[in-house]
């Protein structure tokens, strides 16, 4: 039996794993000393810290199964809304750490900001696409 939560867990785990791998490679490229430490810490705490994200991912998976579209279209919808979800989290985190007046929104139109947003889309695409079997099973079930 596939549930929205079980599918959400798979998508979440893949997303975090991918982000940890990308982060680790970047950290290793920048400097080995703390890079290894970063990989270790990310593996231990990464999943633990991001666990609350499931509160947002699970309903999105459920809603994607309720819209009257084909499986592929529902999957496309889910990828887009997961991207928006992560984007909102990034904006929220940015507002908390940088503050509105320091031009956080302006940063999104910089090269780094655009690369960051496109990376989220690619990571989400891979995470959802590789979970499509469970996702389709869920769509057939509901």
């Amino acid at each position: 039996m596939v549930t929205p939560l079980s599918v959400a867990v798979k998508i979440w785990a893949k997303t975090i794993a991918m982000l940890i791998i990308i982060g680790s490679i970047c950290a290793l490229c920048l400097g080995v000393g703390w890079g290894i430490l970063f990989v270790g810490l990310a593996l231990i705490f990464g999943f633990f810290i991001t666990l609350p994200l499931l509160i947002g991912i699970s309903p999105l998976v459920k809603w994607s199964s309720l819209i009257p579209y084909s499986k592929q279209s529902r999957m496309g919808w889910l990828i887009f809304f997961l991207f928006l979800f992560y984007l909102l989290i990034f904006i929220g985190a940015g507002l908390l750490s940088v503050g509105y007046h320091d031009g956080f929104f302006g940063d999104f139109m910089t090269k780094d900001g655009a690369v960051c947003m496109l990376s989220i889309i690619v990571v989400q695409f891979i995470a959802v696409r590789t979970t499509r079997k469970s996702l389709y099973k869920l769509y057939e079930q509901l």
């Binding site: 819209i67 579209y69 279209s73 529902r74 999957m75 496309g76 919808w77």
Partner: peptide
């Protein structure tokens, strides 16, 4: 809200 789903649907 449904723009992505509508677009993929047309492609599909």
């Amino acid at each position: 809200v449904m723009v992505v789903a509508s677009f993929v649907e047309s492609i599909k």
